[in-house]
Structure formats: structure tokens, C-alpha cells
Simulated scan of single mutants.
Amino acid sequence: MRSNEDSYLLVSRDLLVLLMERTGDGSRVTVRELADEVGVHPSKIGHLRTGEQETLPRTKALACARRLGVDELVLWKPTGRAVCAPLEEPHIQAVPA
């Protein structure tokens, strides 16, 4: 079953690897540690690093950016609409006179 949540596209797998080597606080984070904090299986982080996967749900992508100490848009690009689609105006039907 697929979630209705918007996906975020990884901007650069090389950047992800670099940020894991030196996070915002200067420490290193392993694949397993990042996966635990984001709430995904370690293989998902591994696949992001190798390019086998390019997206995460919004909440997971934000958790990943937060753990690495960067703004979400440094590492991720939203793939959904920025705003909701406009609602159609109700059609007025002509009534016979």
C-alpha cells in the first residue's frame, strides 16, 4: 500500500555520504544509526547512498536532514505540488423557462 504523503527527492547521493561523514555537529553517523533515527530499514539508507533509491516520504526526509544538521532543502527536493490544486467552480446548469 502506497502512502498519500509527498515524496522528497534526494538532491545528491554524494552529498548524503559527505554529510554522514561529518554531520552538523561534526560527528559521523553510520547507516544503521541514521536509519534508526529516521525510522527506516538500514537498507533504505544504503540504497539512497548507492542511487538504487532516490526518494523518501516527507516526514522521513525531514528527519534525515534534521539528524544530519542541514536544512531539508539542502539535501531534498519536494516532488509534489507546492500548493493544492484549485477547486473547480461549480457549474451552473441552465434550467428550462
Rank of each mutant, 00 (worst) to 15 (best):
Gln53Pro: 05
Arg49His: 00
Glu72Lys: 00
Ala65Tyr: 08
Thr55Ala: 11
Pro90Ala: 13
Leu87His: 06
Val74Asp: 01
Ile45Thr: 13
Tyr8Met: 08
Thr79Ala: 05
Thr23Pro: 03
Gln93Arg: 07
Pro78Gly: 06
Ala61Thr: 04
Ile45Phe: 02
Ala65Ile: 11
Val11Lys: 05
Ile45Trp: 01
Cys84Thr: 15
Leu73Asn: 05
Glu89Met: 05
Arg22Ala: 03
Ile45Tyr: 02
Asn4Gly: 12
Trp76Ala: 08
Asp6Tyr: 02
Lys77Gly: 00
Val29Asp: 00
Leu56Thr: 08
Ser7Thr: 11
Leu48Val: 12
Pro86Tyr: 00
Arg13Ile: 12
Gly51Pro: 09
Glu33Val: 14
Ala82Arg: 03
Val40Tyr: 06
Thr30Cys: 06
Val70Glu: 08
Glu72Cys: 00
Gly24Ala: 04
Val74Leu: 00
Gly39Gln: 08
Leu15Thr: 14
Ala63Gln: 03
Ala63Cys: 03
His47Pro: 06
Gly80Cys: 07
Ile45Lys: 00
Leu68Arg: 01
His47Phe: 14
Thr30Trp: 06
Thr23Ala: 12
Ala35Gln: 12
Arg13Met: 12
Lys77Asn: 04
His41Asp: 15
Thr55Glu: 12
Gln93Cys: 10
Thr55Phe: 08
Thr30Ala: 09
Trp76Tyr: 08
Arg28Ser: 13
Asp6Met: 07
Ser7Pro: 00
Leu34Tyr: 00
Glu72Tyr: 02
Glu5Gly: 04
Leu9Lys: 07
Gly69Asp: 11
Arg66Thr: 15
Pro96Gly: 07
Ala35Trp: 13
Met1Tyr: 03
Val83Lys: 10
Gln53Asp: 09
Leu19Asn: 01
Ser3Gln: 04
Cys64Leu: 12
Pro86Met: 09
Ala65Val: 08
Leu9Tyr: 14
Pro96Glu: 07
Leu34Thr: 03
Met20Ser: 04
Ala94Val: 15
Lys44Val: 15
Leu48Glu: 04
Glu5Met: 10
Gly26Val: 15
Val74Ser: 00
Met20Glu: 02
Thr50His: 01
Leu73Met: 01
Gly80Met: 06
Arg2Leu: 11
His91Ala: 13
Ala94Met: 09
Arg28Glu: 15
Ala65Trp: 03
Asp36Trp: 00
Glu52Met: 07
Thr23Tyr: 04
Tyr8His: 03
Val40Leu: 12
Asp6Gly: 04
Glu33Phe: 02
Arg49Gln: 13
Val31Arg: 03
Leu15Met: 14
Gly69Ile: 14
Arg49Tyr: 02
Val31Gly: 02
Pro78Ala: 11
Lys77Leu: 11
Pro57Gly: 09
Ser27Ala: 13
Gln53Phe: 08
Arg22His: 05
Val74Glu: 01
Pro96Met: 04
Leu56Ala: 01
Asp71Asn: 09
Arg28Asn: 14
Val38Asn: 04
Gly69Thr: 14
Arg32Thr: 15
Glu33Ala: 13
Gly46Phe: 09
Leu16Gly: 10
Gly80Asp: 11
Asp36Cys: 00
Asn4Tyr: 12
Ser7Lys: 04
Val40Trp: 06
Ala63Tyr: 01
Glu21His: 13
Pro78Asn: 02
Ser43Val: 15
Trp76Thr: 11
Ala97Thr: 12
Leu87Thr: 12
His41Cys: 11
Val83Phe: 14
Ile45Ser: 04
Leu15Trp: 07
Val38Phe: 08
Arg58Trp: 09
Lys44Ile: 14
Gly26Leu: 12
Arg28Cys: 15
Ile92Arg: 05
